[in-house]
């Protein structure tokens, strides 16, 4: 991990500022808007070139929405997404669809579900080669060469080029998805829970493949995950999201050793410990995650927080930089001493 920490001084590739995405709730015959689901409610972060940033949170916290907004699979309601490429910076949030298409090749996505992300009616070679074809590599032989190269890169046998997805296991399918994402040498890869649909044993293989590719190709990755144990080995920094907002953003090691937000502490306590016989001191969060259509006043986490005070119910905490490179949104950040994972094993995967 330390090998990649030098990325922290690299230029910023992607800067997300005050990103919001509201989904209208419509009701009745006339489909009148009766409310808003605030899926993403003011998210800001930056990714430097060559860095891996993990975006972590429970299901429904808006992390997938953030990743889809960045790729403009959906249009954000508000905010700016500044993307630096070829020496200039473009705001993706406001770009019309037509001007967006030539930019697509610089950002690619690895999907969560390796079954739904591959067209069952296309052979592997066509699936991996499609981005190449769309972006102007019309020569069949040249495309085939590049596809074989990519397949080797992700550890797929070249003989599989004419097979259909139904002949592959989940892990192999995810390799196909990764090869497709890499086809155009994108500046940014958004990996939306790339291993959460896989078996644990296969998860490790895919994570190792991603690590290996990061080292070899110097990829910049936004890694979306719902569980901190997966993220630990692949990311330089971690952003923890709760109900549409980032509540804590820190370098991976610092965050694991000493979380500053009670929610991060709870997430960390849920991560399985690799030490046999260790007594699990898991913090069980009571109640469900807050409804993003009707978030509680004050700090959205206060109904589930065991450190909540009276002011947490009224006052909404903003992200504050408590140390260099470390931000947290908690009113009691200065006073609480929270439990992290001290005996962090270095190579568990």
């Amino acid at each position: 991990m330390s090998a990649r920490s030098e990325g922290l001084e690299a230029p910023v590739l992607l800067e997300v500022k005050g990103l919001k995405k509201y989904f209208p709730i419509r009701k009745g015959l006339l489909r009148r808007v009766v409310g808003q689901v605030k899926a993403v409610d003011g998210v800001s972060f930056a990714i430097r070139k060559g860095e891996t940033l993990a975006l972590v949170g429970e299901s429904g916290c808006g992390k997938t929405t953030v990743s889809r907004c960045i790729l403009r699979a959906m249009a954000p309601s508000e905010g700016a997404i500044n993307f630096a490429f070829e020496g200039r910076t473009v705001d993706l949030a406001t770009l019309p669809r037509k001007r967006l298409r030539p930019l697509r090749r610089h950002m690619q996505m690895v999907f969560q579900d390796p079954y739904s992300s591959l067209n069952p009616r296309m052979v592997v070679g066509d699936t991996i080669g499609e981005p190449l074809l769309i972006n102007g590599m019309t020569d069949r032989a040249e495309r085939r060469r590049r596809v074989l190269e990519l397949m080797e890169l992700v550890g797929l046998p070249g003989a599989a080029i004419n097979r259909f997805p139904h002949a592959f296991s989940g892990g192999q399918r995810q390799r196909i998805g990764i090869a497709r994402a890499l086809a155009l040498n994108p500046a940014l890869i958004v990996a939306d829970e790339p291993v959460s649909a896989l078996d644990v044993s296969v998860q490790a293989q895919i994570l190792n493949l991603l690590l290996d590719l990061q080292d070899r190709l110097g990829l910049t990755v936004l890694f979306v995950a719902h569980d901190l144990s997966v993220v630990k080995h692949v990311s330089d920094r971690v952003a923890v999201m709760y109900v549409g907002r980032i509540v804590e953003l820190a370098e991976t090691e610092a965050l694991y050793r000493r979380p500053l937000h009670p929610y991060t502490e709870a997430l960390l306590s849920a991560a399985p410990t690799p030490v046999p016989g260790a007594v699990s001191q898991r913090i069980i969060l009571e109640r469900d995650i807050a409804d993003p259509a009707n978030p509680p006043p004050g700090c959205a986490f206060h109904p589930r927080c065991r450190y909540a005070e009276a002011r947490c119910k009224v006052e909404r905490p903003d992200m504050v930089e408590v140390e260099p490179g470390r931000q947290v949104a908690c009113l009691r950040a200065g006073e609480l001493v929270l439990r992290g994972i001290t005996d962090m094993p270095h190579e568990a995967v």
Binding site: R104, Q108, S117, T127
Partner: peptide, 13 residues
Amino acid sequence: EEEFVMAAELAGA
């Protein structure tokens, strides 16, 4: 809503 359709869209199709 299938992800392979989104993948094609993100590839610029």
